[in-house]
């Protein structure tokens, strides 16, 4: 099964080139709104989703967005990157998903919630946003997309180990399947040529404590965002709460219980506003 999973990763369609082009254009700095709009318009699927997202309350643009040119003008650089990445990633989250959750859309909802939470926390801690973190949180469970295709009956065995042997879900996956969904996710991100920071955050999203390098905030915040969403029951799957709690995360960021509770309240607001990001069908 491990072989099959690894071979499948190689066959996953390439990451949408439009997303890369937009990122390159923006990071090069020297571009016009018209240029940016042209790149996005060439990809009809992404363009359609950008239009839908731009009009969701999440981005808080007052006037109706009728064209990609409107979106580029009113959303601003940071939000355009976020919208393009969200649209690019969402196309992989369709169809049924055996084992983990009934449909990939549910996994998508959980992913968007974690991505929004990552920004709420980052904003609370550092008073700004971080789109690498956003992307890492959005992709943290991408490994489940491929795993779900193959686990089949083994999934029962994985759950068996969780329920009767006190294993975490991750440990159970390793024992039964030979690899966990976080590592599969890292390999998918590698296949898509994502930068090291994002690959690392996906690979260690349940165990950031295993990362040797000091002062890595992104993996810890992806971990925390995911755990808070799982705790509050947003888009949870069969694995549910079967993950090990890492208490040090609270001290690491000097968080109080109240901060976590406030973040949960804010997330419910944002999820309401972000329907355009969640509803991808």
């Amino acid at each position: 099964m491990l072989d099959k999973i690894l071979r499948t990763i190689e066959r996953i369609p390439a990451f949408p080139a439009t997303v890369r082009k937009v990122e390159e254009l923006i990071s090069a700095g020297d571009y016009s709104a018209a240029q940016l709009a042209r790149v996005i318009e060439l990809d009809q699927a992404i363009a359609a989703q950008i239009l839908k997202m731009s009009n969701s309350a999440y981005f808080g643009v007052r006037q109706p967005i009728r064209s990609i040119m409107d979106a580029v003008t009113y959303l601003g650089q940071e939000n355009i990157i976020r919208a393009v990445r969200t649209a690019g990633i969402s196309r992989f989250y369709h169809g049924p998903l055996k084992g983990y959750v009934p449909t990939a859309v549910q996994l998508w909802e959980h992913s968007v919630a974690a991505a929004l939470m990552s920004q709420i926390l980052f904003q609370k801690l550092y008073r700004r946003r971080n789109h690498q973190l956003y992307t890492a949180a959005l992709l943290h469970d991408v490994g489940k997309l491929v795993m779900g295709e193959f686990v089949g009956e083994s999934f029962q065995k994985v759950m068996e180990r969780v329920i009767h042997h006190g294993c975490s879900f991750l440990e159970a996956e390793e024992q039964i399947i030979g690899i966990n969904h976080a590592e599969v996710g890292r390999r998918i991100a590698e296949h898509w040529k994502f930068p090291e920071d994002i690959k690392e955050a996906i690979a260690f999203h349940h165990r950031p404590d295993l990362l040797e390098k000091e002062n890595k905030t992104i993996p810890w915040l992806v971990y925390l965002s995911d755990q808070i969403c799982l705790m509050t029951g947003i888009g949870v799957g069969e694995d549910g709460l079967a993950y090990r709690g890492l208490g040090e995360v609270i001290e690491k960021f000097n968080l109080r219980m109240r901060d976590v509770e406030e973040s949960i309240v804010e997330l419910t607001d944002q999820l309401e506003a972000a329907r355009g990001l969640v509803n991808i069908e």
Partner: peptide, 16 residues
């Protein structure tokens, strides 16, 4: 009111 595994120091929202 559930918690995640061995969450002795974790947020305890379930417990609260």
């Amino acid at each position: 009111g559930a918690s995640i595994l061995n969450d002795t120091d974790f947020f305890r929202i379930g417990q609260k």
